[in-house]
């Protein structure tokens, strides 16, 4: 986190992604702007279907039929990955300069190949290593991600390893070519809580030693706080709030972010009851005009039928809301009072 250069590594500009389904066109991303610099850590939070994973897949060039990128641009070190020579360059940097860790380590590894072979594949593809060279590097990588007895583990198959081990293998694969950006798509969701902490610690450690930029995609706000400097909150295919993590948790601006934080249990807060955000996210088949959170927002006004831009609320924080920082959720009575 100490060496953040000014040059943005990755820029996502007004990105729109659509999916063709039987029911019609699903507008998965509706104009997403993001940028991340070298060594920076960014969390993307939001509930299922908000477009977090689609954003990651678009960056990795993994949007496939029936999905397509409709408009917008993705730039890597200032050059577009979508136009001109971009797609060819995208194939070269994928897995080498940008890599991705998936949610479910149980199904993300090929069950019929040894884990060593699966890591070696990346090295052979991107660094042109021979089998023997790759083998040596694989053992180093396994060591680096904290897998005991690397020579033995490298020859094992995924089903012989635990979930946490498999996620470490995925991480070893992702850092094999010393990438500049690591995208972790809910890397701990499928793991036990104790293992979750270990895997997050590992990612944080690697982030520091390799000066990695990290995009962490999660729905778990607890995971964000320790690992990421900046946070983007997504809702219905858009970024609704973006800011520094500490600040955002302290004084969230967007009503949705406020609701999200208030609906997460905290050990150090015995006073406020958890709230539930009524209703469900809008269908992205025909997204509502204006602010997508309008229908569930307690402080919605006439003007919310107009889409609010992502505007600076206070230094280091911006929100897409006409009434930012207005407390949206009523202070509920303290728990003790409610029980008596």
């Amino acid at each position: 986190m100490d060496a953040i250069s000014d040059m943005p590594l990755l820029e996502v500009e007004r990105l729109c992604v659509e999916f063709d389904t039987r029911a019609g066109v699903v507008h998965g991303l509706r104009g997403v702007d993001l940028s991340i610099r070298r060594g920076e850590t960014l969390a993307i939070v939001g509930e299922s279907g908000s477009g977090k994973s689609v954003t990651a897949q678009a960056v990795m060039g993994l949007i496939d039929v029936p999905g397509r990128i409709v408009s917008g641009d993705i730039k890597w070190k200032g050059q577009s990955l979508l136009t001109g020579d971009g797609p060819k360059r995208a194939r070269e940097i994928r897995g080498k300069e940008v890599s991705l860790i998936f949610q479910d380590p149980m199904t993300s590894l090929n069950p019929l190949l040894t884990v060593g072979a699966q890591i070696a594949e990346v090295l052979q593809r991107h660094l042109g290593m021979t089998k023997t060279q790759a083998r040596t590097r694989v053992l180093e990588l396994l060591e680096a991600v904290g897998i005991p007895a690397p020579p033995r583990r490298a020859n094992q198959y995924p089903h012989e390893l635990s979930g946490g081990m498999r996620q470490r293998i995925m991480i070893a694969m992702a850092i094999a070519c010393e990438p500049q950006l690591l995208i972790a798509d809910e890397p701990t969701t499928a793991l036990d809580v104790t293992i979750q902490a270990q895997v997050l610690e590992l990612i944080a450690g690697l982030q520091e030693t390799l000066n990695l930029s990290v995009i962490l995609i999660t729905h778990d706000l607890g995971v964000v706080a320790g690992l990421c400097r900046r946070v983007a909150v997504m809702y219905a295919g858009r970024i609704v709030e973006m800011g520094l993590a500490d600040d955002l948790f302290e004084r969230p601006s967007h009503p949705y972010t406020q609701g999200l934080i208030r609906s997460t249990p905290r050990l150090d807060d015995r006073m406020n009851r958890l709230i539930a955000i009524e209703g469900s996210p809008p269908s992205l088949l025909s997204p509502p005009v204006g602010c997508s959170f309008r229908a569930r927002c307690p402080i919605a006004v006439e003007r919310c039928t107009e889409q609010p831009p992502l505007a600076v609320v206070h230094p280091g924080a911006s929100a897409a809301c006409w009434r930012p920082s207005v407390p949206a959720w009523q202070e509920s009575p303290p728990l003790e009072a409610a029980l008596t």
């Binding site: 993994l62 194939r91 897995g95 080498k96 090929n110 190949l113 594949e121 995925m170």
Partner: peptide, 20 residues
């Protein structure tokens, strides 16, 4: 899912199709 991993690793499509 493992095919998606193979693609994310940047393998050539032929490698993904025939190798995986």
């Amino acid at each position: 899912q493992y095919v998606r991993t193979a693609r994310a690793k940047g393998l050539r499509f032929s490698q993904v199709l025939f190798g995986h």
